[in-house]
Computed example of a mutant assay.
Amino acid sequence: MKSIRIEDYMNKHPVTFTIDMSVAEASEKLIDSPQNGGPVLDVYQRVIGFLSEQECLIHLLEDTYLSEPHATVADMMRTDVLTVGCENSVVDLAQQMTKNKPKLYPVVDENKRLLGIITRSDILKAINIHLRSFYQKGHGRLV
C-alpha cells in the first residue's frame, strides 16, 4: 500500500490565486469551486503562499466594516505552506495529515512549481480503493 502515489489521486487543475488578486475575486473563485483554499502562485507557477476560506472571510468582514475593499491576496495569504511531491506515498501523507492541520496540500515539483493539489478526501478515496481491491482479491474479508 506504500506504493500508492499522490500523482495518481491529485487534482491536476485546482483553483489557484495570484498575489495581486482582490479579496472579492479570490472569494468568488473559492465559492465557485469545491476547494476550501488554494495555492498562491508567482509568475513562474511556483507556490509562494496559500489562501483559505477563513482568510477570505476575515478580510471580507474587515472590508464590510470599512465600507471599502482594499485587501489583496498578498495581504491575506499564508507563506508557511506545507507541500508534497507527486511521487510521495498516499499512506505517508495520510499519516502526516493525522498530525498536521492542512486539509489540502499543494503538490509541487523540485522547483516548487505547482503540479496539482491533494485533499484529505482524495487520500480517503485512494486508501479505500486499495483496501477494497485487496479484499476483493481474496486477501481478507471486507466488513
Rank of each mutant, 00 (worst) to 15 (best):
I48S: 01
E68G: 06
G116F: 00
F17T: 08
V15N: 01
L41G: 10
D32N: 15
V90T: 13
G38R: 04
N111Q: 15
V107W: 07
R113H: 12
S133T: 12
L30F: 00
T79Y: 08
P39S: 10
E53C: 02
E110G: 08
S89H: 07
D42T: 06
T16P: 02
I118T: 12
V43S: 12
P102A: 04
N36Q: 14
E68W: 02
T64L: 12
I118H: 05
Q54R: 12
M21V: 02
E62Q: 11
V15F: 00
I19E: 15
L60A: 07
V23W: 00
K103L: 09
V23C: 14
Q96S: 10
L124S: 07
E110H: 13
E87V: 05
R120L: 06
E68L: 09
R46H: 11
A94L: 10
R120F: 03
H130L: 00
H59C: 02
Y9E: 08
H59A: 01
Q45V: 02
M76W: 02
D63E: 15
Q95A: 09
T72Y: 09
G49K: 09
V81S: 06
T72H: 11
I123S: 05
L82P: 00
H130T: 06
I117Q: 00
E62G: 05
T79Q: 13
I31Q: 05
V73M: 05
I117P: 02
L82M: 10
A26V: 05
N128Y: 07
D63K: 01
C86Q: 13
F134H: 14
T18W: 02
D42A: 02
I118A: 09
T79W: 05
C56M: 03
F134E: 13
H70L: 10
S27L: 06
V40Q: 11
V23G: 01
L114C: 07
T16K: 06
M77N: 07
T83P: 02
Q95F: 08
L57D: 07
L82W: 06
H130M: 10
T16H: 10
Q45D: 14
E53N: 12
I19R: 13
M21Q: 13
H130R: 12
R78F: 05
E25R: 08
L93E: 11
Q45L: 06
R46G: 04
L66H: 14
F134W: 14
I6E: 05
A24H: 08
K137H: 15
L115R: 13
L93A: 03
V23T: 13
P39G: 12
K29V: 01
K112E: 13
E62F: 03
I6A: 07
D122H: 15
L131M: 07
L104I: 14
I58H: 14
E62C: 03
C56E: 03
S27K: 09
D109E: 12
E68A: 09
D80M: 08
G138D: 07
N36D: 11
M10H: 08
F50Q: 03
S133R: 09
N100F: 13
K12Y: 11
S27G: 12
M76L: 12
M97C: 09
Y105P: 03
L51V: 03
D122C: 06
I123Y: 03
L115C: 11
M77P: 07
K103C: 02
Y9N: 10
D8T: 11
